[in-house]
Amino acid sequence: MSRTLATIAAFAGLGLLALAQDGPSRAFDLLKRVVDGSNQVDYSGKRVIEFKVGPDMKAHTELVLRSQGRTRIDFPQGSSLSGQVIVEVPDRREHYFPDSNEIRILPPRRQDAVDRLKFFVDQKSRFRFDVANGGRVAGRNTQMITVSDTKGNKIQELWIDDQKPLVLKRTMFDPVGTLVGQFEFVTIDFSPRIPRDAFRIRRRGATYVTVEQHAERLAKEKGFAPALLRDGQAKLEFAEMRQFMGKDVFVQVYEYEGKRLTLFQVEKDLDTSRLGRMGRNVTVHTWTSSGRSFALLGELAKGKLEDLARKVSERRSES
């Protein structure tokens, strides 16, 4: 009797050991399945996104429709975002703002987001992957992958549908383990009925504005130089005006070879060495022009950043 129990215990132990060793590769395979297959999944669903903005978390809800690599996002009636529509196709993103009757033309973001996820797959030796049962999300069974750095600091958690290559829930953490953002589908339907013309925005009288035009307009409104990074590989993702200690800070975020660059323009002098100290893994290049201070930040080599900084300029006036 005791011999039988010992044999069972030994087999159970070996099984657990095999599972433990299999965990990272299973997690990696799941992640790869999402990277390779998420473009082929059609669905409609409601997802709640939450970001850390300053000290608080701010949430909003999106109604997402996806089919054949195209995406449409609407917002629930009654929300401050109601009436805005986003349509993204592989080569273009359009964002309709009803208050200004404006359609903003932006670079697509979806492939970039997939590429960022692919970064974990390509650089797998730099990360640790663990997998566990994720329970149910939006009524679906999931597997939860935890991505950590080599020291075990949690970077992200991803809940992946058991049947479909889709992330149903995702959480992200800063270097000290604080939640900085998360999204979660609360409903999902993998057999959506697609309305006709769902992936086109047609609005008579609306003005088309590129993101570069929007950035220049924003700069002029606040008295900044309309200087942009003018490089064929650098795509302006968005531009915004921030406030710090009662002063405006002009922010432009670019995508460059799969990495993020941020170009800042401020009225006062910047302490380059302090910026460098605080940035840790972020490379910093600062300069002044026409009484303004500029800073270009990114995870690039210093020389590359300096090359790009030389391409920050105002648009040449058309004669």
């Binding site: 970001f51 986003i86 979806r110 987001a113 800063d174 800042f264």
Partner: peptide
């Protein structure tokens, strides 16, 4: 500025098309 840079990168990753 460092905080804005890191937050923007994280937000774009998380939001995807949103």
């Amino acid at each position: 500025l460092i905080r804005i840079h890191l937050d923007s990168a994280a937000a774009l990753d998380l939001a995807g098309t949103g």
